[in-house]
Amino acid sequence: MKPPAFQYYQPHTLDEALQLLSEHGDAKILAGGQSLIPMMNMRLAHPDVLIDINGLTELTHIKETDQGLAIGALVRHYQLEQHPLIQRKVPLVAEAEHLIGHPAIRSRGTIGGSLSHADPAAELPVLATLFDWELVVSSAAAERTIPAREFFLSYFITALAPDEMVTGVRTPSHAHAGAHITEYAVRAGDFALAIAAASIVLNASDTIQSARIALGGVADIPWRDPDFEASLQGQSPSPSLWREVGQHIKEAIDPTDDLHASADYRRQLAQTLVEKALAGALERAKLAEMKGRQA
């Protein structure tokens, strides 16, 4: 299990990297390598050109902006887990990191890599979808942003053009909302069979001002339904409402059978996890609302 040969570039600036990418349409970007290298070791990926961006310090930032945070594509999982800004502004990201792989994987894997890999059963794509992150995407010619919900197209397929790479993420702060993520994996650190994440903002009257729900592992991309979310506005949160939501989602999703879980099993997991995620989000929304009132 050794990787095939490739042409290797180690650019020192983003411009240099993007230039290389425009010259080599079949190039692969190497960031943390936690998904790409296994594919190469198994010879399931044979990239002709590898552009190693690990030296691009300009992609390692975590910065506060007017809207929330700007996170460089090379920020690694352990940094998302530990960085004070992440913990304060997007606490669910820090929390979700505990569910991602194992310590050694989190040492190397990056936010940009995880999103570009577009595994619908991975945690960060679910959060990107839940919180409507914008992905900053660059080519030698231009920079643009792609909303998360337009970025993921199918299993491991994204809206990136061959000469583009993800250089960063813009995420609104969700510190004012109550949010929770939960998943079911057979063993600790395994890819989850299903993931559910929810975020709730309460009105002063303790009714739902807004609710968001995203799922992983139940479709070819992270699943979300804003129309359905809108129908929850103004309702009083309660276990019975969560049961209704769970039931609705169980019927709305269309997962497939695979080696480890049948479609029916995934439906039941999704239903269960959605209820749990909403209940967890509500607890925190109440806290957030209390804090808001005190402030």
Binding site: K2, Y8, G33, I37, P38, D52, N54, A104, I105
Partner: peptide, 28 residues
């Protein structure tokens, strides 16, 4: 042990943090 990043037998400390040496190119 697996060259796929699962078993952890190849774990080393890379700049002080545990990392899979089977998923890291020496050039990197």
């Amino acid at each position: 042990g697996c060259e796929q990043g699962v078993c952890g037998a190849c774990t080393v400390l890379l700049d002080g943090r545990p990392a899979r040496s089977c998923l890291t190119l020496a050039v990197t």
